[in-house]
Computed example of a mutant assay.
Amino acid sequence: MTIVDIHPHIVSPDTDRYPITPIGGKRSDWSADHGITFDQLVAAMDAAGVDKAAIVHSSTTYGFTCDYVADAIVGHEDRFTGVFSVNVLEPDGPKWMQHWVNKGLSGMRIFARGSTIKDAWLAIDDPRIFPCYEYASEHGISMASNVTVDKFDQLENVLKRFPGMTFILDHLGKTDFTDCGNYDAARPLWDLAKYPNLYLKVATRNFEQSLDPETLFPKLVAEFGANRLAWGSNYPASEGTLPELLAKARNGLRALSDDDRDWVLGKTALTLYPALAQGEAVAS
Rank of each mutant, 00 (worst) to 15 (best):
Asp170Leu: 07
Ala32Cys: 09
Lys194Met: 10
Leu169Trp: 04
His34Gly: 10
Asp176Pro: 11
Gln98Pro: 03
Phe224Thr: 03
Ala203Cys: 14
Phe80Ser: 03
Val56Asn: 02
His57Ile: 02
Ser59Arg: 07
Ile3Thr: 13
Gly82Lys: 01
Met143Phe: 15
Ala203Asp: 12
Ser115Tyr: 11
Asp16Pro: 07
Leu169Cys: 13
Ile129Tyr: 03
Val50Asp: 00
His139Pro: 09
Gly75Asp: 08
Asp150His: 15
Gly49Asp: 10
His139Ser: 05
Val147Gly: 08
Asp29Glu: 15
Asp153Arg: 09
Val88Thr: 13
Ala193Trp: 01
Cys180Asp: 11
His171Ile: 04
Ile141Arg: 00
Ala247Leu: 06
Phe111Lys: 14
Tyr273Gly: 04
Gly107Val: 03
His7Lys: 08
Phe207Arg: 02
Gly164Thr: 04
Gln98Cys: 03
Val282Met: 08
Gly181Glu: 00
Ala275Val: 10
Asn206Lys: 06
Leu198Thr: 00
Thr65Ala: 15
Trp30Val: 01
Asp150Lys: 14
Val50Leu: 06
Lys52Gln: 12
Ala269Val: 05
Lys52Gly: 10
Pro94Asn: 13
Leu172Gln: 04
His34Cys: 12
Pro274Asn: 05
Asp33Tyr: 04
Thr175Tyr: 02
Tyr235Ile: 13
Asp71Lys: 05
Ala193Arg: 10
Ile117Asn: 06
